[in-house]
Design a protein around this nucleic acid. Structure first.
Length: 927
RNA sequence: GCCUCUGUGGCGGAAUGGUAGACGCGGCAGACUCAAAAUCUGCUAUUCCUAGAAUGUGAGAGUUCGAAUCUCUCCGGAGGUACCA
């Protein structure tokens, strides 16, 4: 019986594989296939069943592709730097280096227990100095590069110097322009221009400061004013920090989303985040300088009655002005030349758009409310429909006069009209020119553009990437400062800049940012000198101080997938050879990337940017990192709360009649479905499941529960079905005798055809269903068919498949002693294959297409879409013959009697899945 | 509010324009057994019920000979996002 044999089966197979080292992959002349899971951080809490969905699915696919003769790169390293690792260390009062090591080895053990076929020789951790050396190296490359906005790609700073020296280019506001021929020299300091162009740069910016975490966070790490990790309050404050100019890539990041094979929701989340918007930039002049505003509704320009700016807008010249106050500055309206007041407003953000808004209170609700509160004039520009006018009018006039009221007294309405409408007749414009909405918009725009008041621009919501963290457990920056605070990169030869081992590594909570690395005085100050603009400690004796912030944990995960291709290279982050071999020939370098949607705008955006940068510099050959992306669904589970809102461990819960009771107290508990996690005390340990049912059964169950992308509630009731399945497999396959024949010769061919298709497209639940059906439907199985079946089962249930494969291998060696006449009818290739190899090394079974088709088939007959009868016909019978047969049937006659047949159709089913050629006949009746 | 996804038996789910409910769980009946478990066999959408028929994929309309599948409107659920100019 399968259950009694379970341990024997698992041990035998595992031992066999360990001897063969089957998971190792080397560069060869085979076609490569790279499949990866998202980089895991080694959590101190270990894996729960929720994590296994993605991991098992990549393993299944990796095993399948190996059997299809692909050279599969399937490895797993650990994202060991960063907040989660550090916080766990703080909580357990240990050094992160120690906890990280412990957690990694624990996690490796758990992964192994699931029989994942990773190439273990390719693993590494982001906190290994051999690895972060290259993260630092890439940072230096960014520091030493700029974005050429004319060509749309990054280039070395030396190119910029050349371009500027040639006199053919100038730089304005961080952008490169072709110089008009007269420009020869640059007025501004060249060095200043260069530093304004670097892709990695230091800047005083409004940052998201999280006092509780004691560090700043990037925009992507803040949600609803709370930190993404831990849900702590975040506040804005100015700080000088390292930034990465990801905004230079906004256009490419946005556009290339369309050529990726990614789930639609991830694509649209990224698009939302990048936030490309076409609009108009309009300049208002003031005595203190120009104010640029960005608008998507330039046609309402006439209705501007004030400008709303952020309280940090440069026009204030650093003057401290409270929010929602009049600034005593006026701007000139570009059309009417009216003086319009400038107000600071709390709804205008300094880091969004231009930090200034043209306020049109008649047509923008926020402007409307602000105007009402501060007694500012309201001027209507667009005509609403009458329904809106009636619903929003506060006074009482005759219906016929309501439009006139809107035109003259828009403040008598309860809100702004934000919809579309025709322009009200304004002296500068002839209203007849503005017949349609689009035309109206374009006419005003044309006028503005003509007069030079405005230009059409693209704006992006994406902000530059804040790259400094006031934490200990991260990559140190390869940067030093001289005594005057000037920045110098450390020369490449002296990388890595190793993280000092310090005991007091905790962040300081509170309002005064203090980077922990500052406490390592010995490490912080270094002696050396500047050679060719770079710091070296090899010569000189000048005093320098190191940058004491560290990089965010997203840094290391931006390029780890490339390192799997060449994990131990000391000379380069990846060799050209390894990069060329493993990178796919598709859009993205990695064939298949599997991981959760929670990283949609964090890791996946940063990594795409990072890859594009490496691409521009010629280090990688693909435009994008990840070709195909798949989000496995979550596994949710019920959590249980008692009357005091305290979560009760699931091991202390008993379910009776769909109600939950605490075992130890007998208390009735509240059931709360949701994410699995430590804090909900509802995590289910995969190890428990594997101990109870076996690894193979567990893997099958997880894959069979639902389609891979679907979120599902954990339920171990159904797992028994998979045990029954393997039990049947065990008894049917192990008892096959050499000369057994198939009860249905075509069944295996149909099964292979269908399962292959499903495996290719990650539909493992239906692949398993087909395998179950095969076992249920076959009474007798030949050896060759049995082996084909085992190969299909292998990716899901490797232990049992290998065990049974080897069982027959042993039988075959006995068979060698048998006289030749008894061997007749057995495939000699098959005998060789099975005798010498593990099932891992066998080929995925092939099918004979002619055997997937039946000679006869049962064809349903429908009349007006209703199933009325079925008829058994030869598959290749022609349509008119079928029609005759159908019309002859008594049943059909009775339905058709007295009616005209308007049309009859014989449907041929489009192949791929169903082997049957014909499906249905429809007689349409006209009554 | 906006964007994306989603809604099928008692439950997980099949079926992507052509026989709705594959496969699994659960349930019912039978076999084996002194008995139970395990296993095996059959049945299991609903209603009238012998046959046979009618109804049925969140609700309503539409396209079609034919719709779970395509289109529109509405309702419910999940995720994302927002004083976004």
């Amino acid at each position: 019986m399968y259950r009694n044999k379970l341990k024997e089966i698992e041990n035998k197979s595992t031992d066999f594989w360990n001897k063969l080292q089957i998971n190792k992959s080397e560069i060869s002349n085979k076609e490569p296939y790279v499949i990866l899971d998202f980089f895991p951080y080694p959590s101190g809490f270990g894996l729960h069943v929720g994590h296994t969905l993605g991991y098992i699915s990549t393993d299944v696919k990796a095993r399948f592709e190996r059997m299809n003769d692909k050279n599969v790169l399937y490895a797993m390293g650990f994202d060991s730097f960063g907040l989660p690792a550090e916080q766990y260390a703080i909580q357990t009062n240990q050094h992160p280096e120690i906890t990280t090591q412990q957690n990694i080895s624990n996690m490796k053990k758990q992964l192994k227990a699931l029989a994942l076929s990773h190439d273990e020789s390719r693993t590494f951790n982001t906190s290994d100095s051999d690895y972060y050396k290259w993260t630092q190296w890439m940072f230096l490359k960014m520091y030493d590069s700029f974005f050429d906005n004319i060509e749309g790609k990054a280039k070395p700073i030396s190119d910029l110097v050349e371009m500027l020296d040639s006199g053919k280019f100038t730089v304005e506001n961080g952008k490169l322009y072709k110089a008009s021929n007269s420009v020869k020299s640059i007025n501004k300091d060249k060095e200043e221009i260069i530093s304004s162009m670097r892709l990695a740069f230091l800047e005083e910016v409004e940052v998201n400061w999280c006092p509780k975490l004691g560090t700043v966070l990037s925009n992507e790490e803040v949600k609803n004013g709370l930190s993404e990790r831990g849900n702590y309050p975040v506040e804005k404050r100015p700080m000088k920090q390292w930034m990465i100019r990801i905004t230079s890539y906004a256009e490419r990041l946005n556009k290339q989303l369309d050529i990726l094979d990614w789930p639609q929701n991830i694509v649209s989340m990224q698009k939302n985040w990048i936030g490309e918007q076409e609009g108009t930039e309009i300049v208002f002049s003031t005595k203190k300088g120009d104010i640029k505003i960005f608008t998507t509704k330039p046609q309402t320009l006439y209705g501007v009655t004030f400008l709303a700016i952020s309280s940090k807008h440069p026009v204030l010249g650093g003057m401290k002005v409270d929010e929602n106050k009049f600034t005593n500055i006026y701007a000139k309206h570009p059309i009417t030349n009216e003086e319009i007041p400038i107000w600071t407003a709390d709804y205008v953000y300094s880091d969004y758009g231009t930090g200034a808004v043209m306020a049109v209170p008649a047509h923008d609700q926020r402007d409307f409310e602000f105007a009402k509160e501060n007694d500012i004039k309201i001027k209507s520009v667009l005509k609403p429909d009458y329904k809106w006018l009636e619903e929003n009018y506060l006074g009482s006039v005759k219906q016929s006069e309501i439009m006139l009221e809107w035109e003259n007294n828009p403040d008598k309405f309860s809100s702004a009209f934000e919809g579309r409408g025709n322009l009200i007749d304004i002296e500068q414009f002839d209203v007849n020119e503005f017949l349609s909405i689009n035309k109206e918009k374009n006419k005003v725009l044309e006028h503005l553009l003509d007069k030079g008041f405005a230009k059409q621009v693209k704006m992006f919501k994406l902000r530059d990437w804040l790259f400094s963290r006031q934490r200990y457990w991260g990559e140190p920056f390869p940067i030093v400062y001289d005594s005057s605070g000037k920045v110098f990169p450390i020369c490449e030869e002296e990388l890595p800049v190793e993280l000092p081992k310090q005991h007091d590594f905790s962040p300081r909570e509170g309002n005064d940012p203090e980077a922990p690395l500052g406490r390592s005085a010995d490490w912080k100050s270094v002696k050396g000198s500047i050679v060719n603009g770079k710091f070296t400690s090899k010569v000189g004796n000048e005093e320098f101080t190191r940058e004491i912030n560290t990089m965010p944990n997203w840094a290391g995960s931006c390029w780890y997938y490339l390192r799997y291709m060449d994990p131990t290279n000391k000379m380069e982050f990846i060799s050209k050879e390894a990069m060329e071999y493993w990178s796919s020939s598709k859009v993205g370098a990695i064939d298949m990337y599997v991981g959760g949607a929670e990283h949609a705008v964090l890791h996946l955006l940063y990594a795409r940017f990072w890859h594009m940068f490496l691409f521009d510099l010629g280090y990688v050959k693909n435009k994008e990192p990840f070709d195909k992306l798949l989000n496995p669904g979550m596994i949710t589970a019920d959590a249980y709360k008692n009357g005091n809102d305290v979560y009760i461990d699931i091991n202390d819960v008993e379910i009776r009649n769909k109600k939950a009771y605490q075992i130890s107290t007998g208390e009735l508990l509240v059931i709360e479905p949701g994410k699995m996690g430590k804090r909900y005390k509802n995590g289910i340990d995969p190890q428990d499941m594997c101990d109870k049912y076996g690894i193979d059964v567990f893997r099958l169950h997880v894959m069979y529960m639902a389609p891979i992308t679907q979120t599902r509630n954990w339920n171990s009731d159904n797992i028994i079905g998979m045990e029954r399945f393997l039990s049947k497999v065990y008894s049917k396959i192990s008892s096959i005798k050499l000369l057994d024949t198939d009860s249905d010769e075509n069944l295996i061919h149909k099964t292979i055809k269908f399962v292959t298709k499903e495996m290719e497209e990650f539909r493992f639940n239906t692949a398993i269903a087909t395998l179950i059906k095969f076992v249920n439907d076959s009474d007798s199985i030949s050896l060759s068919t049995g082996l084909s079946f085992l190969k299909m089962l292998f990716p899901f249930a490797p232990h049992l498949s290998e065990y049974l494969y080897q069982l027959h291998r042993n039988n075959l060696s006995i068979f060698d002693e048998v006289p030749d006449q008894h061997k007749e009818g057995l495939d000699s290739d098959l005998i060789d294959e099975i005798k010498n190899k593990s099932i891992c090394m066998s080929k995925w079974p092939e099918y004979d297409d002619s055997k997937t088709k039946n000679l006869y088939m049962e064809m349903p007959i429908t009349i007006n879409g209703r199933l009325r009868d079925k008829i058994n016909v030869p598959v290749d019978l022609d349509e008119s013959e079928i029609e005759k047969l159908v019309m002859d049937r008594e049943k059909i006659k009775s339905f058709v009697a007295g009616k005209n047949i308007r049309k009859s159709i014989v449907i041929k089913k489009k192949d791929p899945k169903d082997p049957d050629r014909l499906i249905s006949m429809i007689c349409n009746l006209v009554i």
